[in-house]
């Protein structure tokens, strides 16, 4: 029930077209950038994925986050606007299950956006770096089946890492959206958090694991240890935020 039920509730809210529009917008960033000034990047002797992500991921991550926070606010807005949640809580289901359903749905939508972005990375790599003697060849060898496999493996790792970094944001923005019946307050808090995240200097690890700062992290060009540190931080945050939401709902029910 959970995820498909939650999916049915977003009909006509504009969330789905919004996710597609946002995904396409984010996907077009590296394409536009490379179309305009590929000469700045094509000469670099490093993995083309690293080149593209280092150049454009900040902006793409920002778009992904804005997508997640607005969609999360809308998801709970449909519940609160006409008190639908009041009817739902008198049905044989837990409010916690609604939250989990929304989390799964939001994760699915984020995956859809990320897939679009990864497709764009494939296109950019092959189009601008795939030529003879290009970075792709230097990095993965001749364009043959084996080279593809290596490349796809790297891409999959990037994809999984980006998704992992986004999970705490999904959870936290859903928590914030569920806590305020007025969507604008939740959205305001989220936006403040995102902008706070953009001014956090990367060199302070303790600060850079602020949930809304995590999506700016990329797997390329950092040591494996660092990457693992961030993954652990993301997993820990996901668990803490999830637990906090469960406790919050319990307390809110008890105080009602």
């Amino acid at each position: 029930m959970n995820i498909s039920g939650e999916y049915k509730k977003i009909k006509r809210t504009g969330i789905l077209p919004g996710v597609f529009a946002g995904g396409i917008l984010a996907a077009s960033i590296p394409i536009l950038e490379l179309a305009v000034r590929s000469e700045q990047y094509t000469g670099l002797v490093q993995s083309p994925l690293q080149t593209i992500l280092e150049a454009d991921w900040q902006m793409m991550a920002m778009l992904n986050m804005l997508l997640v926070i607005t969609a999360s606010c809308m998801l709970y807005h449909t519940e609160y606007a006409d008190h639908a949640i009041q009817r739902i809580t008198t049905l044989p289901i837990r409010e916690e299950a609604v939250f989990i359903g929304k989390f799964l749905l939001m994760t699915g939508l984020s995956i859809a956006a990320l897939v679009m972005e990864m497709l764009s990375l494939i296109f950019c790599t092959l189009h601008w770096f795939g030529g003879e003697g290009g970075a792709y060849e230097t990095c993965y060898g001749e364009i043959s089946a084996g080279a593809y496999l290596e490349f796809i493996k790297d891409l999959a790792a990037d994809f999984a890492y980006c998704l992992g970094m986004l999970i705490p944001v999904i959870l936290l923005s859903l928590l914030i959206a569920s806590a305020w019946k007025n969507m604008w307050i939740a959205l305001g808090i989220d936006v403040v958090c995102v902008f706070m995240a953009t001014i956090i200097p990367e060199r302070y690890f303790a600060l850079s694991i602020f949930p809304f700062a995590l999506p700016f992290r990329i797997l390329e060009g950092v040591s494996a240890d660092r990457a693992v540190d961030y993954l652990i931080a993301a997993a820990a945050e996901a668990m803490i935020i999830g637990a906090a939401e469960m406790i919050f709902m319990k307390v809110r029910r008890a105080l009602a």
């Binding site: 039920g5 049915k8 509730k9 809210t13 606007a81 006409d82 639908a84 949640i85 049905l91 044989p92």
Partner: peptide, 26 residues
């Protein structure tokens, strides 16, 4: 089955779709 105070529904769904949400949960 309950109805408390103001009607509670999803404004973005039709009457039929609203009932379908409830039907699936029960």
């Amino acid at each position: 089955g309950s109805f408390i105070e103001a009607p509670a529904f999803y404004g973005n769904l039709t009457g039929e779709e609203n009932l379908d949400i409830v039907r699936r949960i029960i």
